[in-house]
Write a protein that binds this DNA or RNA. Structure first.
Lengths: 202, 202, 202, 202
DNA sequence: CATGAATGAGTCTTCATTCAT
DNA sequence: AATGAATGAAGACTCATTCAT
């Protein structure tokens, strides 16, 4: 009955990832101990090492499976959009709202990742990959809008895409840090308003 | 001659802070050792502990003295601006350009700080203080522009200010992480362009 | 059909011993893991524990069955010798040559055993038993030679036997450690030459 | 006062080496813990790591400083010998007797080293270096005897030297393992007797 | 009987902090 | 005041052994 076993193993793996995520969110990567993760996941340290070869690998997996999928997610969730304006609007929604409602921990995980970026090359590259992925997608959306004549023709798609990505992560960080007074709804509205006024023809 | 001694002490203190900054920029706070800092500052570990009561305190001081002054800096550098538009423009310049040219390490120090924010309440509050300071200043600038009739009257100063602050730090982080393809000049231009189209009356 | 089962069990047992020997020869006893042995023998760890109650017992069995039989082997291989001189000569041959040609791993296994002798009383006693066995046999050979008038009458059989045994193991160790420049044939010749000049009458 | 400090440091270093030697002699290298060594040397674990960068380095140093000097020792102790025969005789004495009387632990340390030889390349090479050193010295002694006409001209100096070295270590091992019935004095006598009968002209 | 996942005590090593000199 | 040797608690990781399936 390999099926049951496979399922079982995958469940364990996810349990570990969930536990690790919680622990990392609580104390950051460096201060989290393998023991913390083991206890929280209900496994022994030894068992944990059957699923991941090191503490670092757990972090990396978390980054790939929880942060790295942002571009895919964006693509899927905006696939059925009406036109360029709708697509832009949805992207902003997803970032500034949906991500936090549907996957509330992702924001804080991003914070953890940035915390490690300086000292861990692989984490840093994970973040940059994500950056590339999202920027690539946004640029395509913008370029489509330009070609279709919906957006002003002289907009620099690449730069605007990068800028929006930086904005999104900046907001995410402060939001994940519980910045008082930082509310997402008004920000979403203002961002869209700025984008609209900037990209509109005339 | 207590004065000489005082000066001497202050020099030592700054030497330690400089050393710590370099070390932190290189390996992050957690991975930096007190020994690293001592060696780099040319002092002994013991001496170091006469100036700061703990490794953590060094980091905190660094935050206060190097990051926390951003609002003051902004204020000073834009004091002689011509009008609201000039002031806005200068703010963007300072963030997206000047900070990195005049104090190039500040960006990376911010990265270090975000890395610690999750696990260290005081660091986190340092970042939030800085946020409050900058946002407060930007809001004042915008409000002045609204009152003077230069900016559209229905703009939400608080939200726009927060948004710009988040954008600034988002850009800073990716820039400090050496993101390939991220160039500051074009971003500066596009940000100003967006702000202009958004804040302009009609 | 219990017979088949018995045979099967014995095959398994030998498979484990062979695997263990290979692994021990490769990394020594302490660094070898039970998992290594299991993998190499094609069995599961659990299965392995049905044949041997502990890692240590595997080593002990190996010593008994592979090293401990040296005296028997000597006896068997020299049974049909012509006289004392021929018997001595054959003993030297067996040690310095045959052991390494017919059972090349025995030398390295001896190395493993010596590696454990210090910390494991039972291994140590295994080595001493082997010593006693071989020395006993050699002494008998020498004494026979003395009685038959072939060897000089004042030779101390016990001491010469011990000495040859020590020499044999010393050579074996250095040979097993791949000492460059250590060749067996010349050593064999010189040993025999020394023994001959020493034991000859006059 | 750097002199006092230097002396102090060297004393500490030796204390650690002595402690390590005792512990290794008791349980072998692998089973000895760094904690054992620390406790026995009266230092903390941390202090120990100020003097040696790893457990392995302690072992290596022990080998170099306590085992590796055998060739030098031999040379020094036989420098004032009368002639080839006297020199040979002294070499045998030193090995079979003096080493154990003056440096009783060396024999057991050799045992420890052989125990690690299989799994640790550097230890193995340490042993082989020692082998080379001693064999080189013995060969020189024998060759001198041949040239001076004291020893038979057709003796193979290299082989005889290797053989004696193997014999010496074989005896040392069994002696270090407390082999009952193995007495050094008679062995010394018989070895010399064999060497004499073998090397004498005619 | 066989499997191999799980256990958890035990290892080496690091490093913030103290304190005798 | 300064030094840097010493401390020792804590952390990542391993592996012999067990036991549910």
């Amino acid at each position: 009955m390999p099926k049951v076993t496979e399922t079982h193993k995958e469940q364990r793996r996810q349990a570990i990832l969930n536990a690790a995520e919680q622990v990392f969110l609580g104390k950051g990567y460096q201060l989290a101990t393998v023991d913390d993760i083991a206890v929280r996941s209900g496994l022994s340290v030894g068992a944990l090492y059957r699923y991941f070869s090191s503490k670092s690998e757990i972090m990396l997996t978390l980054m790939e499976e929880r942060l790295g999928r942002t571009p895919d997610l964006l693509e899927r969730l905006t696939a059925d959009a009406g036109g360029p304006w709708d697509q832009m609007s949805r992207c902003v929604d997803i970032f500034v709202l949906a991500l936090r409602v549907r996957h509330p921990s992702t924001g804080r995980l991003l914070l953890v990742a940035w915390g490690e970026a300086l000292q861990d090359r692989i984490v840093r590259e994970g973040l940059l990959d994500r950056f590339r992925g999202v920027v690539g997608y946004l640029r395509a959306v913008i370029e489509r809008g330009i070609h279709s004549g919906d957006f002003r023709p002289d907009a620099d798609a690449e730069v605007l895409a990068s800028l929006l990505m930086c904005l999104a992560d900046g907001v995410t960080l402060y939001w994940a840090a519980n910045t008082p007074g930082l509310e997402l709804q008004p920000i979403r509205a203002t961002v869209m308003s700025m984008v609209r006024s900037y990209l509109s023809i005339q």
